[in-house]
Design a protein around this nucleic acid. Sequence first.
DNA 1: CATGAATGAGGATTCATTCAT
DNA 2: AATGAATGAATCCTCATTCAT
Lengths: 192, 192, 192, 192
Amino acid sequence: MSPRTKAQIDEIREQSREKIIAAALDLFAHNGFHSTSIAQVAAKAGISKGLIYNYFESKEDLLQAIFTEAMKNSEDILTLDPYATAKQRLIGMAEASADFMYNNQEYMRLFLTLMMQPDVVKSMKPWFDTVGKAKKDMLMPMFEEIFPGRAEVEYFFFGAIMDGIGFGYLVLGREYPFEDVKRKFIDYIQNQ
Amino acid sequence: MSPRTKAQIDEIREQSREKIIAAALDLFAHNGFHSTSIAQVAAKAGISKGLIYNYFESKEDLLQAIFTEAMKNSEDILTLDPYATAKQRLIGMAEASADFMYNNQEYMRLFLTLMMQPDVVKSMKPWFDTVGKAKKDMLMPMFEEIFPGRAEVEYFFFGAIMDGIGFGYLVLGREYPFEDVKRKFIDYIQNQ
Amino acid sequence: MSPRTKAQIDEIREQSREKIIAAALDLFAHNGFHSTSIAQVAAKAGISKGLIYNYFESKEDLLQAIFTEAMKNSEDILTLDPYATAKQRLIGMAEASADFMYNNQEYMRLFLTLMMQPDVVKSMKPWFDTVGKAKKDMLMPMFEEIFPGRAEVEYFFFGAIMDGIGFGYLVLGREYPFEDVKRKFIDYIQNQ
Amino acid sequence: MSPRTKAQIDEIREQSREKIIAAALDLFAHNGFHSTSIAQVAAKAGISKGLIYNYFESKEDLLQAIFTEAMKNSEDILTLDPYATAKQRLIGMAEASADFMYNNQEYMRLFLTLMMQPDVVKSMKPWFDTVGKAKKDMLMPMFEEIFPGRAEVEYFFFGAIMDGIGFGYLVLGREYPFEDVKRKFIDYIQNQ
DNA sequence: CATGAATGAGGATTCATTCAT
DNA sequence: AATGAATGAATCCTCATTCAT
């Protein structure tokens, strides 16, 4: 009965899925989760409303999928050179994070917004907590090595700068001297 | 003529207005503007839905009023000691800002969120632009004095730290070592 | 306790009542009964919303009062010269009616509208029926005298012209050649 | 691709659209535009409230659609026999109009009501003006031919009778001797 | 007599979701 | 796999009416 092979179907499915996720990410990031309608997502993805429910159980499930997808793409941030010094590894991480932010603005926008208003989509809360904890677990050892005795405050200070740069860049866009600020940041770490 | 004096009415109005603004700020900040219903605001303020429209023309007008109100309370941040050195004034501003953030978490949460998703409430965009510009106009002279030749990058780096601390504090709440990070920040400025 | 005499109070009451009725008539006539709010009536009358309920039990009661009031002013239409011929009396009535319409446009507008949509304010239905029947009872004898054997059709034809002129005038306003059409109408009756 | 063919969908849409328009016309005509709720329209049409917005952008758009629809059905009124005399054409038009009124009471009721209270739905005003002007442009030439020198007053007198008959019929319904009055009207024109 | 703050029911509109095809 | 008609709950907002003063 089926004129398409299973492989073809899988590919079609994958393409549709990605179109939906891309459209939803864009809209959720700029217009907000609740202000974006499924109809808008469907229109932007060039498909029908109904089809979205063929791939995602609900609007929240779609949001969840956006983050799961982004996680995959960000894995190399976490890949550290085991032979480098702690400070070098920190710099590497800072640069990788900055570049990820630079190349994934929409994702960052959505991520930071939801981090700040976790009650908007309550079901995401555990996910955020897990990610936050994982990040801390990964970074704290470095800080303990570089800043013995005051690792935690330095960790948070470092995090503040990272987040703040991302925030500023997202707000100002091209007007933000991203590269300059990033270099200043690297220098700052270097001098510690 | 009037059974209640004008003063009485003004007081009643002021009280109701404040109750509504407080409730709305709390809810908008945590749940998001679009995810918060007027019914929720009314319930939290302990009044009827209809009364809100006696004080504010629309939900958006209420949001606007929240920011106008907060502006009043934040005016002393902008008050600088004219006899202090630029660096001292910068530190003063940093401390005042940090304290304002600490004491007005909900407002900050709402503010930062909307800054990051200006399309959520498009009518606020001009307001944000104005505030952003005013801030830069006030601070840049100090940076030009302290960091001649690289004022802008230092301005944005400074801003990133401020925003980042606020962001971190808002996300983690009491778990965030706010005082420690703030002191670290002051020290950082001191050493420039 | 009361610094005002009863007569003064009555006069104030009468004045307020009339202001309200005039404002309501204007608004109901042009904007429609349901599209007009009590707040608008109060604003136009220059009084408070609450006061309206001091004079009228409800919005519908206010509407009722408008018609009762207008009835008083239209009584002379019904006053016919008992010594005139039937045709002369008919012409007198036609002229009086036309003049009443001309001078009470708003009332006519409201009246005709509600006649055509009696379900808009169901409570008025009996009133309209009564008025319509009274009118017919008054006029039919004349038509039976002037047009024996075909009184009814002539009555309705006559009524159609009357109503039609009023309608046209209300729709076009000053652009309507009211006087010319009225004269044509009188001539028409004359020639029967 | 599509599980329903385009033709099927078009038919479904056309049916729903007509059900909604019919229900709305009935209710708007008898209960008034503002006194009729979308819920009532939906109930009468046997569909859900939401579906109405699948076919019409707003309540006002639905009203507009009613008139646009009725225009189509009334086009033959405007079709005149070019070989007939002016008077014959006028009689033809009078009869066609009377029949249209007789068969489209609800539409007439709505039309006349809104003509008399144009502020109730302000957006319809231009439409009414256009229709009124078109009617005059069509009829005036005939009147100038039949009543040279006094075409305008005769035009308005004729119009008054037409409107008045419609009005009377709408108010009284079956009690109105429509056929008799119509014949009287035709005779009247005949004798000019 | 007069005011206007307050209420709550009701109305227009939106939108996530379902389902027949 | 895909569509889009259909639903109904939820939302913003309006407004007649009440009542304390």
